[in-house]
């Protein structure tokens, strides 16, 4: 092989390697973009798993509620009458909205004036023990100005019940 041919060979080798190097650089630049896509998707999957955990918390709360709620429980008005006796009160439903089937939420407001503190305690205690499907969402207690030692009480009560149409009962 002549020196000139040798030199040509070297140049060809250099060109081939440069082309391969160029291809490699281009490939690795695309690889950066792909890595960015993978990172983004990985983060998305992590966020979806967080959402999934929250979703499982919700569904498990529904299951827990359904498990602890008896098929039949004391009606709210009757429980209040039993607890307050002769004390007058006013109970009115303010809102009803559907929850995840077959459940719905009913919000009621109870107002009682001149209520002794002991009766209020009994009333709240009854919510804990006799009405597991009810929850006191808001409690307003103000001492009665006209009757010292007695209280003006307003309770906002949430009750979750199974919808009859949905359950078919």
């Amino acid at each position: 092989m002549t020196p000139a041919a040798h030199k040509r060979t070297r140049w060809v080798m250099v060109v081939v390697l440069l082309v391969a190097l160029g291809a490699a650089v281009q490939g690795f630049r695309q690889s950066d973009r792909r890595n960015e896509t993978i990172r983004s998707r990985h983060q998305q999957v992590q966020e979806l798993h967080d959402v999934e955990r929250e979703w499982l918390t919700w569904t498990s709360a529904v299951e827990t509620f359904a498990a602890r709620t008896p098929a039949t429980s004391t009606p709210l008005r009757q429980m209040i009458e039993d607890t307050l006796g002769a004390t007058s009160f006013n109970l009115s439903a303010t809102e009803t909205r559907p929850l995840t089937p077959p459940w719905e939420l009913e919000r009621s407001e109870l107002f009682a004036a001149g209520l002794p503190a002991a009766q209020l305690a009994r009333l709240l205690d009854a919510f804990d023990h006799r009405l597991p499907d009810c929850r006191v969402a808001e409690l307003l207690v103000i001492p009665s100005e006209s009757e010292p030692g007695r209280l003006r009480v307003t309770l906002v009560i949430d009750q979750i019940t199974a919808n009859r149409q949905d359950t078919g009962t």
């Binding site: 709360a61 827990t64 559907p98 929850l99 709240l124 205690d125 804990d128 969402a137 979750i160």
Partner: peptide
């Protein structure tokens, strides 16, 4: 909106 009330029922009420 459909599930939030169930979560509230798992927390202590205002009576507590």
């Amino acid at each position: 909106e459909q599930y939030e009330p169930f979560l509230q029922f798992t927390r202590p009420g205002m009576n507590t």
